[in-house]
Amino acid sequence: MAFVEISNVRKVFGSGANQVVALDEACLTFEENEFVALLGPSGCGKTTLLKIVSGLLSRTTGSVRVGGREVAGPYSDYGFVFQTPSLMPWRSVLQNVLFPMEILGKRDAAAQQRAEQLLDLTGLHAFANARPHELSGGMQQRVSLCRALIHKPKLLLMDEPFGALDEFTRLDMNDLLLKIKAETGASVLFVTHSISEAIYLSDKVVVFSRRPARVSEEFRIEIRGPRTQACRFTPEFTEAERRASEALGLLVGSPQED
């Protein structure tokens, strides 16, 4: 049994003449500890699927199971990183990171230690007492990532978290995420519009069609050796970019061009 099983998920918004089909029979699976990127055109339903997997949004039909459990609502063993950090401006960095543990009634010495470890891991220890407005955009998103990881989630859901960052910061955040993934062992479902980002981060890329979204193709990323920025210039990386671009209909003569 796969760790995450998404079977024939359909999501319809509205009714009658105003009905919009956001997802249509979407199916995919992945294993524990895998990193899976959802790649597709803007507005095709990637974020909708992410919210359905998280339990924040109900599905119209279909099934979603995580760890053998049917998703019926938000669970405390998930972590969610949104497009914007959404930090509480009146709280310090450390207080923002610890907030989920307060909600769970588990803010204790162990939680404090965990938060400090995460701040060390993300290079934020010196800013533990700073307020969000004193941080750069990339640093704020690091705080958001720490907050999502504080309760040791089995599944980390990320909705294009680096899309608003400049290219240099985005590359740094990609490397940081790979480091965190290796150290925490969390499974990751990651939404992005960037082909190169999807390939660099993922064990598997899932390409969505235009709305109503279906899975048009999925393929594994086979890159030898550790993921470093240098791997972006390898034949394996280039071939994966070509395959993803073709699946998205970006190349002349590609299947989705018709």
Rank of each mutant, 00 (worst) to 15 (best):
M1A: 11
M1G: 13
A2M: 11
V4R: 08
V9N: 11
K11R: 03
S15D: 04
V20S: 12
V20W: 13
V21I: 12
A22S: 07
D24G: 02
E25G: 15
C27S: 15
T29E: 15
F30P: 10
F30M: 15
F30N: 12
E31T: 13
E32C: 09
E32I: 07
N33M: 12
G40H: 08
P41C: 03
C44N: 02
T47G: 05
L50N: 04
L50S: 04
K51M: 08
I52T: 06
V53D: 04
S54T: 06
S54E: 02
G55F: 03
L57I: 04
L57S: 12
G62M: 07
R65C: 10
R65I: 10
V66H: 04
G68R: 12
E70H: 06
S76L: 14
D77I: 08
Y78N: 04
Y78K: 04
F80M: 05
F82V: 02
Q83D: 02
T84R: 03
T84S: 06
L87A: 01
M88Y: 09
W90N: 07
W90K: 11
L94Y: 03
Q95D: 02
Q95T: 00
N96A: 00
P100Q: 02
M101R: 03
R107D: 03
Q113K: 03
A115Q: 01
E116W: 01
L118K: 00
L119P: 01
A126Y: 05
A126C: 04
N129G: 10
A130Y: 02
R131H: 06
Q140L: 01
Q141W: 01
L145N: 00
L145R: 00
A148Y: 01
P153Q: 07
P153A: 11
L155R: 06
L155G: 04
M158L: 05
E160W: 05
G163T: 02
D166R: 06
F168R: 15
T169I: 07
L171W: 07
D172K: 14
D175F: 04
D175Q: 12
L177N: 03
I180F: 02
A182K: 15
T184G: 06
T184F: 05
A186L: 05
S187G: 10
L189M: 15
F190A: 08
V191A: 08
V191L: 09
T192L: 13
T192F: 14
S194F: 10
A198T: 09
I199A: 14
I199H: 12
Y200R: 09
L201E: 13
L201N: 11
L201I: 15
S202K: 09
V206P: 06
F208E: 09
F208S: 12
R210N: 13
R214S: 13
S216K: 13
F219V: 07
I221V: 14
I223M: 15
R227D: 05
R232G: 12
F233G: 12
E236Y: 08
F237K: 13
R243G: 11
A244M: 12
G249Q: 13
L250M: 14
V252H: 14
G253C: 07
Q256F: 10
